[in-house]
Nucleic acid binder design. Sequence first.
DNA 1: TTGCTCCTCACGTCACGTGAGGTGGC
DNA 2: TTGCTCCTCACGTCACGTGAGGTGGC
Lengths: 294, 294
Amino acid sequence: MMKPWEVNDMLINELCRRCGLTKKAVEYYIEQGLVRPGAMGNGYREFTPADAERLERVAVLRRLGLSAAEIRRCFAEPHTAMQDIAARRSMELDAARERQRLLKALADTGDYAAARSGLAALERRQSILERLLSAFPGPYGRYLSLHFGRFLTEPIQSDVQLAAFERVTAFLDNVNFHLPEELQALLDESAVAMDAEFVESLHASMEHAVSDPCGYIAENREQLEAYMAYTQSGEYLSSPAYRLKQALMQLSCWNGYYEEFIPAMAELSPAYREYREGLARADEVFRSEFGGPD
Amino acid sequence: MMKPWEVNDMLINELCRRCGLTKKAVEYYIEQGLVRPGAMGNGYREFTPADAERLERVAVLRRLGLSAAEIRRCFAEPHTAMQDIAARRSMELDAARERQRLLKALADTGDYAAARSGLAALERRQSILERLLSAFPGPYGRYLSLHFGRFLTEPIQSDVQLAAFERVTAFLDNVNFHLPEELQALLDESAVAMDAEFVESLHASMEHAVSDPCGYIAENREQLEAYMAYTQSGEYLSSPAYRLKQALMQLSCWNGYYEEFIPAMAELSPAYREYREGLARADEVFRSEFGGPD
DNA sequence: TTGCTCCTCACGTCACGTGAGGTGGC
DNA sequence: TTGCTCCTCACGTCACGTGAGGTGGC
């Protein structure tokens, strides 16, 4: 039960000096299970250098704004948790920035009604993005929230939109999207590089393809043909990437992703509807050019 | 004591429906003195339409992130408080953005030491800016925090800098900067338009003047001469603006602004020292061109 | 009487801070 | 014994949420 005293072990005061925390903070972290110091015979707590280092990290993460529960997650799943939390923080920052803008405008104009409607739009956007991150944990959810976040900036003006909003949130609350582990890993891997910048560039090239499909095809004919050929090759059809694609489509169909979520999003957001319509038009041109479904 | 029941008065449930708050929230705001409903004979609380409107505003301000105490201030001093709070929020947002960057970097690299030093720099910057806002309430403090904030982005590397930081914060904690009311009003009025953009443009033109004083003088000779003439005119010397300037310089001397604060800032921030040096060099050129002290 | 509204406690949340009162080691 | 460290309660903060237990009005 009792471990032997080592030369570098220390009592709480020395520990606090080292990691810049108060005794009370350390006691709280012990209570929260973030460290488990040994007990000496007299009831004193004894901390190892490893405990000290751990608490130094706790201090850094706290000052970065993480809660005790989030810090626990960071230690439990070192890589994924921190990325997840950083993505959430980034979203919250966007919201805070918008709130700051609304506050400044309110201070300048005194127009509470404008602030109220700005808040309503903001809160709806946030609740969808949060649900996306919860429903699809990890990099893929991050990608989705960046993708759909682009279309969720306008205020709601009609009851149809309000109903669509309810359907979107209801879908996200109930969806469960479980891939086999290896495919999930592959999905995460391929989504991991999709940060805000990447999604931005993706959207820009999409816009180009949509607004001028023929020009886009002319400019990128070589790559497009190579890609089409690849999607028909045996290599592709036997690859995990193909299995992932199939699984994603299956899951999406079962969930009602295409029948419920996408139509509701299109009703909610005019910008998203336009995007989908452009996509459909471009797709037709592509099909007639390269033939075949898919 | 008891006021007569009016047709549009309402009980708490109706009130909550109107302003989108829970009963508990309303009770809390009553406790905090944000509304004072009337009491009916049976102990029920009775809210007027004015109470309802007030609580709608409370709800908006709360969703914008203000605390109960801040909301009280907004009602007490309608214009100044909201601007003050918005300025503070803006600063906190900058800090949050930086923290988000550090968290993302930590998630990517796992480098806790880098995060720690980034946090230290950030926290020092924030503590100076907060003190500036507290020491100089209102628009002038906002201007100062924007002005000095530009120079407080580098980390501290020497003990001399650390000591200078302590002197800066000690100065700001102890300074009291009270102008006669009319001059304070004038100062606030002239500082009110100095937002981030304005300070940015001010700094840009300052930089131009410093890097090429002769060119700057050549380009702006007319305005500069007009300004110099104005500062010598009887009109200026008998204006409140002149009295304000004199009072500011007096106060600054008494406080040790020039003997303590400015030198400490120059020791703390190399960027600020450079700025001051450039200013001094440019000033000499201006003097030799336009003559006279001041 | 039933069902609904209203009221006032009291305790919980989160990350600690601030004592109070008592013990251990030198 | 003195002075310092250590310990464990207990209560406070902020903006409420969640009951519990009791009353008022129809």
